[in-house]
Simulated scan of single mutants.
Amino acid sequence: MTPARIEFRGIGKRYGTVQAVKPLDLVVEGGTLVTLLGPSGCGKTTLLRMIAGLEAPSEGRILIGGRDVTDLPPGERNVSMVFQSYALFPHMTVLENVAYGLVSSGLSRRAAARRAEAALDGVGLPGFGPRQTFEMSGGQQQRVALARALVLEPEVLLFDEPLSNLDARLRRSMRDDIRALQQRLGVTVVYVTHDQGEALAVSDRIVVMRNAGIAQAGTPMELYVQPDTVFVATFMGEANHVRGMIEAIEGPLATVAAGPLQMRLPHRGLPMGPCDLILRPEAVRLAQDGPLPAAVRRATYMGAQIEYRLATPIGDLLAIMPSAGPTWQAGDDARAALRPEGVVLVRADM
């Protein structure tokens, strides 16, 4: 089966006078995992629920695999959804939970049980069918919810904040499992989260949403290395935001000054004059001969790395450096340097 492509054509959603999703166009290529990322209230879950048929759009059309599904009920879309709460039936066994959708669609209980057992094998839970769901850990319950979605062999699989109820270590393990499973099956996945680390780890593409619209879409690397705006840069991981001045433009490069620093950076279509700069923490380096005076306000040991809070002429900066090597303590006077590949000009937020 060819992986299903999802197309949003001018899709929007209003609740009375409130615009939950502004009219937008978006394509999710078949067989890819696309994450909708953004703060609470930005419209990402509403967009996901419109794909599932749980919310009706106020305008526009939704196509899945070339078929217009805008007016179809959820059961006719060949879409499965994994909810944040898992939504397992507590009075049913694990096997009954996974087989429920198949039995409801008319498949015999014996055939449904065989497919449910295969689905449990596929998510790493062989032999768990007779157990009760309340006897299982959070991670195991999440796998049951995933098996229940996959057993229906959907064209599109939807995840709504699936890892938010898990601890940090289990969250890392489950996100790796979800990504590996998606790549093995080749199914189209739309994944909602507000956790940028999670989005970076699992996605082919990320759609950053803000104020009910799309702020920027691209690959994880594109969004981290070349964010368009201050908002996208600061939402896609730690970022230092400082003000600078574009003093000259020559070809694709601009001469940019920020305090005592002067850099040559791609101008990205920005004019001469005041500008916004993003400095990734890993691009800020403490060095005895650096051009920027830096007073160490705080040094936080994080195992493999140390986080430094610095006071500098261009503002307070966060620097992240390996803990293996020279270190500084709070109260030390130091110098800082920047790696140009971690510095980018961005547009100011409107």
Rank of each mutant, 00 (worst) to 15 (best):
A4C: 10
Q183G: 01
V208I: 13
E198L: 08
L120P: 03
R264D: 11
E153F: 08
R298C: 01
P252A: 15
D228C: 01
S323E: 14
E250Y: 07
T32H: 09
G244M: 08
D121G: 03
V344P: 05
Q216A: 04
P90A: 09
G43K: 06
V21T: 06
G65Q: 05
A180F: 01
S173L: 10
P23K: 05
I314W: 06
T70G: 06
Q216R: 09
E96T: 02
G244R: 02
Q288L: 09
R114L: 12
M272R: 15
R347T: 09
H91Y: 02
Q288T: 14
S323P: 07
D316A: 14
D176T: 14
Q305A: 14
A212D: 05
Q196D: 05
V346F: 06
R339H: 12
E135L: 12
P271V: 13
G127Y: 12
E59R: 03
I320V: 15
E135K: 13
R5T: 15
A52K: 09
T70C: 03
F89T: 08
A87N: 06
E117P: 01
M1W: 03
G38D: 00
V189Q: 01
V232I: 06
P260T: 10
P39V: 03
Q19W: 00
S40A: 07
A20G: 00
P3Q: 10
P313R: 09
M174G: 08
I314K: 01
Q140P: 07
L150N: 04
L102Q: 05
D204T: 01
L338C: 04
P3F: 00
L181D: 04
L318A: 12
D177W: 04
Q132Y: 07
P266N: 13
E76L: 12
G197A: 13
D289Q: 12
M136G: 05
S104Q: 08
A112Y: 10
S40L: 11
P39Q: 09
G315E: 13
G273K: 04
D25Q: 00
A4Y: 11
R280T: 02
K22C: 04
T32P: 03
F8E: 00
P260E: 12
M50R: 08
G273A: 08
L261C: 06
G244E: 11
G331I: 13
H194A: 04
G66F: 11
Q226H: 14
V187W: 02
V225L: 11
T133V: 15
D160T: 07
L223D: 06
L338I: 12
P322E: 14
A217Q: 15
V242M: 01
L170Q: 10
M209W: 05
G197S: 13
V346Y: 00
G186I: 12
E96L: 00
P260L: 11
Q262H: 13
T45C: 10
A295V: 08
A56P: 00
R114V: 14
A149R: 07
P322I: 11
L158T: 07
